[in-house]
Structures are given as structure tokens and as C-alpha cells.
Design a protein around this nucleic acid. Structure first.
Lengths: 108, 108
DNA sequence: TTGACACATCAATGGATGTTGATGTATAAT
DNA sequence: ATTATACATCAACATCCATTGATGTGTCAA
């Protein structure tokens, strides 16, 4: 992972973990429409209030969304930068390394 | 998630789940160098043989890698197509939907 | 200032996942 | 044929994570 710090690794795995849940993917999809309040998300998902809150916190901790308070409402927004960083990581996996000519030492 | 079947959803979450582990990220990184045999990966990771086998199976079940038997050795390769599908999904999240002008019904 | 509302957090529980050591299976060398 | 090698699979256990219902906190309306 070339120049990847432990924190980067941590953050990446946390982000992928946050993405690995259908509820959370549906939330993110809904956020494509722009900033949304929690009550709107509650309507859209067949999930209880505390469960939704849990998933939102998971997404937020992973840096995939940001939130904003307005009176008694909370608004959530996609963090495009985080998505781009993940994309960049995936793209980098496809770029071959210099040990292109690596030969196994273990097996013949 | 516009035109996304339940299977697609399933596959996506399975792929993200497979990506959300440091051991597996390290395996994928090593596969950037091209096809690798399991014994080489064993050397590279500080993991026991059965653990590595478990993680490889997880990656394979998610479609992120493919494997090939050659005598008593197994060789694993990155599946670039799967990576691209994930990238495309992430990119799609950034594309705003037509309900750009959505207004909340719940909160004022 | 009392009560309703929007949301977060907590405690408890069940199920999924990672890890280990042992066993199984196919292949190849002796 | 026997044995060693490379790898997969299994059983057991520990830890993590999703889900639920209850409680907490801040905000607004009456």
C-alpha cells in the first residue's frame, strides 16, 4: 500500500465497513438528492428512529456524510471528497506496481 | 439506487464488506503486482495459513479476486471489473438526482 | 413553564465475523 | 505405497455489529 499510513488504512477500512450495509447504502442514495433532514430519511427507510440514528452516526464517523443542526432538526449531506478518496484507492489497485516481473520464490 | 436490483445491492454490500478488513486490503495491494500464489501471500502477511485461506475465500465470494489451480498451488488475481463496478457506484452517488429541488414535507 | 417534538445515546440481546488449531483432500516427490 | 506439501474446510471460541426499546437532551409551541 505504498505510501499509506496506519491511519489511512484505518480510515479506509472504516469507510468500507460503513458502506457494507444495505440500510446505509439506501441512506447515501437518498442523499444524492442533496441535503436531507432526518425525518425525511425516517420516512424513506423502514427503520426505527434509533436505528436510523445509529446508521447515520456510523456514516458520519466514517466521514462519508456531514451533519448540521438547525433548531431541532438535523440535516445530513454526502461528503463527496470521501467518496473520491475511496475511488482513488480502488483505481490505484488497478495500477500495476513495478514488481510486474515478480517471480515466485516459493513455488516452482 | 435507481435501477438497482436486490442482487446488485447484495453484491455491493458483500463487496464493501469484503473490502472492510485490513488483512484483505493488504492482500489486494499485493495482488497489484499481478497473479500471486498463496504461499507468497502467506509470506507477506503476518497471518496463519487457515486465516489467509479464509480471507481469500471472502474476497473470492465477493468477486474481487479469481483463483486458478495449478498442481498443488493456487494462484489469485485481482478482478479489475469488480473494482470498476464499485467505482462506478461511488461515482453515481455523486451525480445528483432530478429531485434536486426537493423540499421537506416534514420540517418547516 | 409545561408539554410535545426531533434527535441522540444507552443497555441489552442475537447474530455475524475473525481467529485459531485440527482435520481433510488433492497433488507431487521418494 | 508412503510421505510431504499446498491448500481448503471445520469446530470452537471471542469479538464485533445491527437491532430494539427505554431514557436523555435540547428546542420550540402553547
Amino acid at each position: 500500500m505504498a505510501a499509506m499510513t496506519v491511519q489511512d488504512q484505518d480510515q479506509l477500512t472504516r469507510r468500507f465497513k460503513a458502506l457494507s450495509d444495505p440500510h446505509r447504502l439506501r441512506i447515501l442514495d437518498r442523499l444524492r438528492g442533496g441535503e436531507r433532514c432526518v425525518c425525511d430519511l425516517t420516512d424513506a427507510l423502514d427503520a426505527g428512529q434509533s436505528l436510523l440514528s445509529f446508521h447515520l452516526k456510523t456514516l458520519k464517523d466514517a466521514g462519508l456524510v456531514t451533519d448540521r443542526r438547525d433548531g431541532r432538526w438535523s440535516w445530513y449531506t454526502l461528503n463527496a471528497e470521501a467518496l473520491e478518496e475511496i475511488e482513488e484507492f480502488l483505481a490505484s489497485l488497478k495500477r500495476r506496481t513495478r514488481d510486474r516481473d515478480w517471480k515466485p520464490v516459493c513455488c516452482a
